[in-house]
Nucleic acid binder design. Structure first.
Length: 166
DNA sequence: CCCTGATTCGC
DNA sequence: GCGAATCAGG
């Protein structure tokens, strides 16, 4: 039922650049088809050419969130502990870099993981920004080729690579 | 496959 | 007027 109120909200959200499905969720109890249909009838159709570019995703909203780290391969017992402070800082840089590389489309949650999806974790598991890579697994490994490359390098080499000392 | 908006057409 | 089904595109 399109009350004046809901139509008003629809106009606002549509002009704010939200997608039809997002608006459908906001309004509730309605499908994106209904939203699109209404948008057409209102003559609001035709927006920004590239919605993807129009909606820049936020990153690093939190300044100093507590870091909960997941276990990662290639960590070597004692030495890992010794270099933890340094690694911590660099890990955040790595996350930022990786987060900008992994396409939105393939990212997935824990429950969405499955055979053939890269299980590499990106970010702080406690954060809403956290996600698993979800890329195509390579050669039966649980990682995509990109992350497999990182996973099987010793910590030292990985750090060197990040610091441009390769 | 995930998603996007556009269009059609029976209700 | 409404929106599910379908289409075309990324």
């Amino acid at each position: 039922m399109w009350t004046d109120e809901r139509v008003e909200l629809l106009k606002k959200l549509w002009n704010d650049g939200l997608s039809a499905s997002q608006i459908a969720v906001e309004l509730g109890g309605i499908t994106r088809n209904a939203v699109i249909g209404k948008v057409h009838r209102l003559g609001l159709s035709g927006r920004a050419k590239s919605p993807a570019a129009a909606v820049p995703r936020q990153r690093k909203p939190r300044a100093a969130a507590p870091i909960l780290r997941v276990a990662r391969p290639a960590m070597r017992g004692n030495t890992a502990l010794a270099r933890a402070p340094v690694y911590e800082v660099e890990y955040e840089q790595e996350v930022e870099a990786v987060a900008n590389v992994v396409p939105m489309g393939q990212r997935c949650t824990l429950l969405e993981l499955g055979e053939g999806k890269c299980r590499w974790p990106v970010g702080d598991p406690g954060s809403t920004d956290f996600f698993f890579c979800g890329g195509r697994t390579s050669d039966g490994l649980p990682y995509c080729s990109y992350h497999a490359r990182i996973a099987y390098q010793p910590v030292d080499r990985r750090r060197d690579k990040r610091l441009g000392r390769v």
